[in-house]
Structures are given as C-alpha cells and as structure tokens.
Amino acid sequence: MRSNNWGFFLREAVKNLRLNLLMSVTAITTTAVCVMILGAALLVSAHLQGIIRNVGQDVTITAFFPENASQETIDDTLSSVQGYPEVSESTYVSREEALDRWKETFSDQPDIASSVGSDVLPASIELQLNDPRDSGAVAEKLRSEGFEEGDLNYPQQTIDNLNWFTGYMVWALRVATILFLIASILLISNAIRLSIFARRKEIEVMKLVGASDTFVRTPFVLEGLVQGLIGATLAAVVVVWANSAFVNWAQSYLFSVSSESINAFGLMLTLIAVGVLIGVAGSYFSVRRFLKV
C-alpha cells in the first residue's frame, strides 16, 4: 500500500461518515452505551475492592461499654487492655466526650446534632493496633473481658460482612460485563454491517474497476475506528465524570469510598481502546462478507 493513499482513505472515511450520518449516529450511540455499561461495571468493582482495602488497613478497634457498667469495671478493663502487646495506644471516650464528638460531626446539621442526649451514646474505649491483622486476636481478648460481639467494632467484622456481599457482587459484575461485551460486539457490528450492507453495490463496483480488498476495506475500517473513538470517548467522559460525582457524594456521607480506588486516566484509556477495537473489528469483519466479488 502506497503511503500517498492514506490521505485518500482518510478523506473517503470522513466523507462516508458524513453521507451515512444516520448509520454513523446509530453505531456511535451503540458503542457509547455499551462502553458506558462496561465502564460502570469496572467502577463498581474497583470501588468495592477499594472499600475492602481501606477497611482492612483500619487499625482501630472500638469497644462500647454496656450502659450499666460501673466506673470500677471501666477502670479495670482500661488497665488490663493497656497491657495488650498488640495495642499501641488506647483512648477512653466518656459519654460526654462521645456527645461532643457527635455534635461536632453534625455541626452543619443542627437537627441531627441536637437529636441525642448524653444518655444515648455509650462510653467506649478506642484501641490503636500496631498491625491491622491482629484485630481478630484483640477482639477475641476483649470478648473474654466480658464485651459482647455486638459491643465491638473492628475491621474484620466489616470485612467479613463486605466479603460476603462483594463475593457475589464481583461475580455478578464479571458475568454481566462479559455478557455486555458480547452483546455490544454483536450490536455494534450489526450497526456497522447495516451501514455496509447499504453500500454493498458500491463495494461490488469498486472491485470491478480493480480495487484490491485492502483498498476497499481501509476507508470502512477507518470509519469504524472513528465511530468507535467518538462513541467510546463520549462514554469514557461520562463514566469518569459520574465516578468523581459519586466519590464526592459518597465522601460527603462519610462512606469509606476513595477516589484513589480508580485511576481515572487509565480507565478512560481502557474504555476508549475497547471502543476503538470494537469499531475496527466490527467493520473489518462486516466488509469482508461483501468483498467476495
């Protein structure tokens, strides 16, 4: 293929895109929707994994004292807990301090801030561990001190709950992603095939005047590439925007969602690459069927 053909191919591709605007819009929209769904699936699983990671790194265990605990019991427990080798730091939070914290947390939402009195929030002890992996062992010791499972709050608890949930979730997402990928390849190549089918007579004429398969195919493949690129870029922008909106929203409600769970730039590139690949492959295989003249 001579290099001076590329200008010709590009002009052909752009002209065809304009002439077959409706078909192009269909193919672009299909690509965009499919890539968006793929992007959403990737986002959800990345965030779930991010949450598990964050929780796993949490080195805090909180043990809440029962309401009727006497000051004596509390003091006994405190001194014995301070002797745990896994604990680097322990803080006692009295009922009054708990209330102050509550009010501070919701200082911009006065309704919530004033909704509780000092008798509702229990006193607690907060333990900082040296290593988050010790949380299970420390929780076990606290239980032997007389704390009930329900009075403890430690990462392994959350992780167990999350793992149960995310185990299913991640599998469901994987299956859904694969199904959607297959569906989108079918949809997109169908959209492209329709647009090429409408031009099969032209392909026949091109071949009769001596055009090689590559010569006929290249503008179509470029067209698919441009369609895939436009559709996937639109989708990628929407997905990345939706992600940052979600992270902001989640953080304002104190969920442990981190913007670091996702490399926005990498995600964008991945989605665009998938769209371009589908566009190119779709048109390559669709034209092939009509080249046998």
Binding site: R2, G210, A211
Partner: peptide, 11 residues
Amino acid sequence: AYAMEVTGQKR
C-alpha cells in the same frame, strides 16, 4: 479518479 486511485497513481 477512483479507477486511477485503485492503482495507486499520484494525486
């Protein structure tokens, strides 16, 4: 022109 372009002739 198309019939010339398929043979790769110069613009």
